[in-house]
Amino acid sequence: MKTMNDYAYQSAIKNAHPTLKILFGAIPLVLILLLNSLSVGVFVLTAMGAVTWITGRITIGKYLKLLMIPLTFLILGIIPILFQVSSSDDMLFGIRIGNFMLCSTRENIKNALLLLVKAMSAVSCTYFIALSTTMNDLLYAMKQMKVPKMILSLMEFIYRYIFVLFEEYSKIFVAQRARLGYKNFRTSVVSCGQLIAALFIKTYDKCGRVYHALESRGYSGEIPTLEKDYEKNAALQVSLCLIPVFIIAVYLLEKRWAYWI
């Protein structure tokens, strides 16, 4: 299975300290939501996009494609904000459906645009983390944040077996397709159900063997982890301090000069 996180292994900053990278993504993320400003959104989206593109060794086309992933939700989520049900005097345009009137005002469009920009720039922040920090490093950072050990062990395990089970899933899926398991809606429902059930029974079977394998290496209910040595990254540290300053500056500029937004 190809996941977004796989790009983290090719990132130029994959060995930088994970907490640093998380903060680098999280601080702008929080600021976007708090400041609620269009220009901050545009600024963060561009800045994060650029940083991810430069450090991530990922093509622009691929990055844009990744940005399109939440598109369905975005469209479904924006439409209700773009239109209002009750008619208004300052409406720009409207559609009459039966007894209902859907109309859009300047205010609606402004809100929708703001939400769109905010959401996309927030996504770019999360992507920065996902595309630069490997799962193992994220778990390490979570350990520093005092997330309970049990949850971390559970996560380490789940993460590993996602790939194992997905492989099993793909094998069954191909085998079903090879015998026309998905030729129409009815066979698709049955095949899909069978696939999930088979996967479940396989999962359970695996459980016994995995447990034996753990036990034979002295498992006693705890999963120890080795810490990696992380590289110091001065450029990242400096930008981490500068980015909030820039964001606030952009925000103040907007309030001062472009208050009409």
Binding site: M135, N136, E156, F157, Y159, R160, Y161, V164, K206, R209, V210, H212, A213, L214, I223, T225
Partner: peptide, 8 residues
């Protein structure tokens, strides 16, 4: 795959 439980 039954034995290697960790991702690293």
């Amino acid at each position: 795959n039954d034995q290697i439980f960790s991702d690293t």
